[in-house]
Structures are given as structure tokens and as C-alpha cells.
């Protein structure tokens, strides 16, 4: 996974609330388009509007999106995050995010920052001015002074570009031990689908 340490970039203002992942990437693009090609379809329908923010020259190189409340609601499609990554977005700032979308961001080296609505509003105005933002993950700051929260583990994963599957595979003995003990406690779980019994009850 690509590391995230610091980022200095233009931020695009995207104040719309409740932007769902269907809007970020249409379902037709989720059924066959390779991950690397999804960027061209990000916000496909919204882009029919010639004034769409990401198509304005000053925001073409935006790597940050300042978003309205509850960005990324809806479908679990990770293609939404891949599409955003495909147009160069590395960081999103919003008062709240869809929970599955949030998890998907962390899996792909994108930094989602949750800030109180008033602070997001102030950043929205700064984004409208076109002044670049500075994000520092190590210090957990936006523009030097504005602090944000992030879990220590998620932070380390982003800073070092760690892959969660690799980390968990290193815990394989713990998983095996859990299953061994759990088989005693809850043997009915482990019957699984291996001994399906069709009974005439």
C-alpha cells in the first residue's frame, strides 16, 4: 500500500451532503472495469455538468476533497475509493463518512479526516480560495495548527504503507489457538457447511 506521510496539495470544495458511493462510481463500472481504469468514471453522472468542481482548471490537480456531511454513504463498493484514488485524491475531510467507505479508505492508503462541521466549513472556504492545504499525518494536523484524531494503529499503517492482510497473517498462531478453544465452547459453529443435513422435519 502507498505510504501517507505529508501532503501539500490543492483541495476541492465538495459541500454536497450524503454523497453516496453509487454517485462516486456507477454500478456498471463495478462489473468489469480494471481497478486502474476506474478514475475516468469517478462522479461520471455529476461530470455531465460542465461546472463540475473537479473539472474546473484550478481544481484539476486537487488531491484533497473537502466534503459535506456523511460522504461515502451507501453501497460497500470499494471501487468508489479506487475511482477517487484514480483521479489522484489522497485525503478527504468531512464531518462524517459512510462507515464502510471509511474502512475502505484506510485499506487503500487514503486518509479520511473527520472534523467538526464548523471547522470543515472554514476549510471549505479556504478550498474555494484555492490556497493549497498542508496535511501532516505524523503530527495529525491540517495547515499546521488544526489537529485531527486518528487511531494509532491506522496511523502507523498509513505512515508505513502496511498491509493489513500481512499483519494479520503474522498472527496466524493466535487465530489457530482461538479456533481450537472455540471448537470446545461453540462446536456448532464449526460444523459449518461441511455436514449439511437435509432432514424432513
Amino acid at each position: 500500500m502507498e505510504k501517507f506521510t505529508t501532503l501539500t496539495a490543492v483541495a476541492a470544495p465538495f459541500p454536497r451532503k450524503n454523497v453516496d458511493t453509487d454517485t462516486i462510481i456507477r454500478i456498471e463500472r463495478c462489473t468489469g472495469t480494471p481497478k486502474e481504469e476506474l478514475g475516468q468514471y469517478a462522479f461520471e453522472m455529476a461530470r455531465k455538468d460542465p461546472d463540475f468542481v473537479l473539472d474546473q482548471p484550478r481544481y484539476r490537480d486537487a488531491a484533497i476533497l473537502v466534503c459535506g456531511e456523511f460522504f461515502g454513504t451507501g453501497s460497500s463498493r470499494e471501487m468508489a475509493v479506487w475511482a477517487l484514488a484514480g483521479i489522484g485524491i489522497r485525503c478527504l475531510i468531512a464531518p462524517s463518512f459512510g462507515q464502510i467507505f471509511l474502512a475502505n479508505c484506510f485499506q487503500n492508503g487514503l486518509l479520511p479526516i473527520v472534523l467538526p462541521a464548523a471547522e470543515v466549513d472554514a476549510l471549505m472556504r479556504q478550498a474555494e480560495d484555492g490556497r493549497p492545504f498542508e496535511i501532516d499525518l505524523q503530527r495529525q494536523t491540517v495547515n499546521g495548527t488544526l489537529g485531527f484524531e486518528i487511531g494509532a494503529r491506522r496511523k502507523r499503517m498509513l505512515l508505513e504503507g502496511l498491509d493489513e492482510v500481512g499483519l494479520t497473517l503474522a498472527l496466524e498462531p493466535r487465530i489457530a489457538a482461538f479456533q481450537a478453544a472455540d471448537r470446545e465452547r461453540r462446536p456448532w459453529v464449526y460444523a459449518g457447511v461441511s455436514n449439511a443435513h437435509r432432514r424432513a422435519e
Binding site: S76, R77, E78, V81, I100, A103, N104, Q107, N108, G151, E164, V165, T168, L169, L171, E172, I175, Q179
Partner: peptide, 21 residues
């Protein structure tokens, strides 16, 4: 029960476990 993205799905396939806050 909850829904997961593709990366988490890969994680579950490989480890039969999931990381969650």
C-alpha cells in the same frame, strides 16, 4: 453481521478474521 469492502473480503478469505473498532 456487517458489510465489508473488497480489501476486507480478501483479508477474511486469507485469515478468517477481521479487524474492527
Amino acid at each position: 453481521a456487517w458489510g465489508i469492502g473488497t480489501s476486507e473480503l480478501v483479508h477474511v478469505l486469507a485469515t478468517q478474521a477481521i479487524v474492527q473498532a
